[in-house]
Amino acid sequence: METYILAIETSCDETAAAVIKNGTDIISNVVSSQIDSHKRFGGVVPEIASRHHVEQITIVIEEALAKANMTPNDLTAVAVTEGPGLVGALLIGINAAKAFAFAHGLPIVGTHHIAGHIYANNLVQPMEFPLLALVVSGGHTEIVLMKEHGHFELIGETRDDAAGEAYDKVARVLNLPYPGGPHIDRLAHEADEAVKFPRIWLEEGSYDFSFSGLKSAVINYKHNMDQRGEEIIPAHVAKGFQDSVVEVLTAKTLRAAREFGVKQVIAAGGVSANKGLRTSLEETFAQEGIPFYVPPLHLCTDNAAMIGAAAHYMFVAGVRGNMAMNGRPGMELKTWV
């Protein structure tokens, strides 16, 4: 089935719209970032994010249609991120999507944000099943097994902080600007030495993660050094922290890939833009002989193209939303087939 889907994503601090053909081809992809507005607060402020979304939403949708050189009549459906995310932010995309779909009599599909991140890979090369996805972002750290399109099995997840959250908190300890992830990645890359921090493996055989202990270890290290009147070397701390995160993420993903005999391993989510993590996963799976993919940077961070890719398979499977669609801030990733 040929589809042209207008996709809208406003779950956090990017106002985004895209037109996607057949779940694989990006016809247009527009992202309006608010990062500069949140920088001075050291993190995303939900109310300010919502205010920006309402300012940008029609501009971004219009640009996505204009770049695609399409009118509403050319579209098959409208897709929108239904959750998870900041509820006030989600509501802007959802209500714009509903109003647009209603105005033109188009069907609407509510998409899961993390399903979107996983499907960002489908815009680069076809997904092959069974597939293992490592989802790492500011709000998520999950290992997901997919046996076919629309099938999601949560193999492991974080029990406390998401990896991206730990990055942001450690960045704050090191006085790095927001968002801190890229700065830690850069410092770690430059460092020749690493402070030794623990690896949190949890109980034998578990695919779950925990990063709050690691975060505390970094805070304690800084505190002890301060007490002794010694200066910390931020690059060494960054490398020590990143080494721990990357080693645990890589090892658990590898073990899961072996156990489930997957044909493909993919990384998704904002933290998959991290160079240290990418390199480690690439080297590990090259050795293992399992194809590993990670989307280009602009498809790792929040965008609407990924929502359109996932929505194509939902649409083909007959999934439809309606005018009563609401934001679902705590939405679970569920199989739709």
Binding site: V54, I57, T58, I61, N95, A96, A99, F100, F102, A103
Partner: peptide
């Protein structure tokens, strides 16, 4: 209500723009 106002405005401006 911030959220209430935004929902009405978002629906209204999307309809007005696209129609």
């Amino acid at each position: 209500s911030y959220t209430g106002v935004r929902i009405g405005v978002t629906i209204a401006k999307t309809l007005a723009w696209t129609l």
